[in-house]
């Protein structure tokens, strides 16, 4: 169990880290926005050298995006998940490219599909969509079915 990580997080960040859930070989917690980068940095020095994924969840009714960092440690054989909430209005968050170069493309995707700006990411140009003019399509207020209907009935 990654109890040492929980202890290290608690002693360094105190109340900025909350909702900690310890599993057999996993740890999951929420971090405040001002502490999230340092917390990730600490996790990296503790051995979580593989950034598996950066995932975004749109909690529209709460007016927030949740950015979820999924980490894996090859040495410890453990998973760590860190969540951070940011406001849905003009969402922006620091990039973690400085910690994991592989984060560049994950953040680029999140920028395209949710419209989150990652400060410090060198290239946030679109990956998948060509000439996209609507709101970012993976947000909850984007209705895929209505869009498809509008887009393809207009073509007929």
């Amino acid at each position: 169990m990654p109890e040492d990580i929980a202890a290290a997080l608690a002693s360094r960040f105190g109340e900025s880290v909350s909702d900690l859930i310890l599993g057999e070989r996993s740890i999951l917690f929420k971090a405040e926005k001002d502490a999230f980068h340092e917390a990730l940095s600490l996790l990296k020095t503790l051995g979580f050298e593989h950034l598996s994924d950066v995932s975004v969840v749109d909690y529209m009714s709460e007016g927030e995006f949740e950015v979820v960092y999924h980490l894996w440690s090859h040495a410890r054989k453990e998973r760590a998940t860190q969540k951070v909430r940011i406001p849905r209005e003009s969402p922006a968050i620091d990039s973690v490219v400085d910690l994991w170069p592989g984060a560049q493309i994950h953040e680029r995707e999140a920028h395209e599909l949710f419209g989150i700006r990652f400060e410090g990411n060198p290239d946030l140009s679109p990956l998948f969509l060509e000439d996209w003019k609507e709101i970012p399509p993976f947000r909850k207020d984007f209705d895929t079915r209505a869009y498809v209907k509008k887009r393809y009935e207009a073509d007929e």
Partner: peptide, 20 residues
């Protein structure tokens, strides 16, 4: 490594799926 991040909200459909 192929991963699915799934968030559920109590309905019969997932609230969010992210594929790695």
């Amino acid at each position: 490594e192929l991963c699915f991040h799934m968030v559920s909200d109590g309905t019969d459909k997932p609230y969010r799926v992210k594929i790695r």
